[in-house]
């Protein structure tokens, strides 16, 4: 079996150690790392699909994602030598102030990460201004806010308002989501994007980031 196939298998099985070893082998073999990443990313998409149909569950996805991270740790210093590799973008995510519902946000963060974005997870119950400070610190492209309760939807509104007040509205794209939210509400508060579930969140972020490039 080719090294890349063994690596693919180890990643799906979530075997971090084997992944690190096999990734180093690929580097030593002088393999095309960008092509290898494309193969692994396609396989991760398949993992996502199997999760979507509940043939596998979150722990399997998390293990595979961690294994993929182990591969990237080995690849990144090599890729840094290649100026043609562009970074995909940075997304800061968290739940709005007062909101302790975290699974939806966890899934959005996980799948954005799998899709290749750098994700900074601020956790739950995040103050509106902290979203902005952390986005500045991470030099983020997008701020993602999760509101699971009508009572925490104003927390998302506040982020947009503060960005305006600080004269920084153009600096970050803002996306919102969560069970009680809707596209109409997102439009009303002046957010840049909304999605019903994590799959949609990836599309929205891709669109927003390519739109600004």
């Amino acid at each position: 079996m080719e090294t890349i196939d063994r690596l693919k298998e180890a990643m799906v099985e979530g075997d971090e150690d084997a992944c690190a070893v096999l990734a180093a082998e690929l580097v030593a073999e002088g393999a095309d790392l960008k092509a290898s990443i494309a193969v692994l990313a396609a396989e991760m998409e398949e993992v996502g699909r199997r999760f979507e149909t509940m043939d596998i569950f979150l722990p399997e996805v998390l293990l595979a994602a961690d294994a993929m991270t182990a591969v990237m740790k080995v690849f990144t210093p090599e890729l840094a030598k290649d100026a043609t590799v562009a970074k995909k973008g940075v997304v800061v995510v968290g739940t709005a102030r007062g909101d302790m519902h975290q699974i939806g946000k966890d899934l959005v963060a996980l799948f954005l990460g799998i899709a290749g974005f750098e994700v900074v997870d601020l956790g739950t119950d995040v103050d509106a201004l902290d979203f902005i400070h952390e986005a500045e610190r991470a030099n983020a492209d997008v701020i993602g806010i999760s509101s699971l309760m009508t009572t925490t939807m104003p927390g998302a509104t506040e982020v947009v308002a503060l960005l305006k007040d600080k004269g920084m509205r153009d600096r970050f794209k803002v996306i919102v989501g969560g069970a009680p939210t809707s596209q109409e509400w997102a439009d009303k508060i002046g957010a840049d994007g909304w999605a019903e579930e994590s799959g949609g969140a990836i599309d929205v972020v891709k669109e927003l980031i390519s739109g600004r490039a």
Binding site: R97, G98, D99, M149, T150, T151, T152, P154, G155
Partner: peptide, 16 residues
């Protein structure tokens, strides 16, 4: 309740 006295309740505020 989502509203208190006609105003949307916001978590962690007096309206809650």
């Amino acid at each position: 309740l989502e509203d208190f006295q006609g105003r949307a309740i916001q978590s962690k505020t007096p309206f809650e």
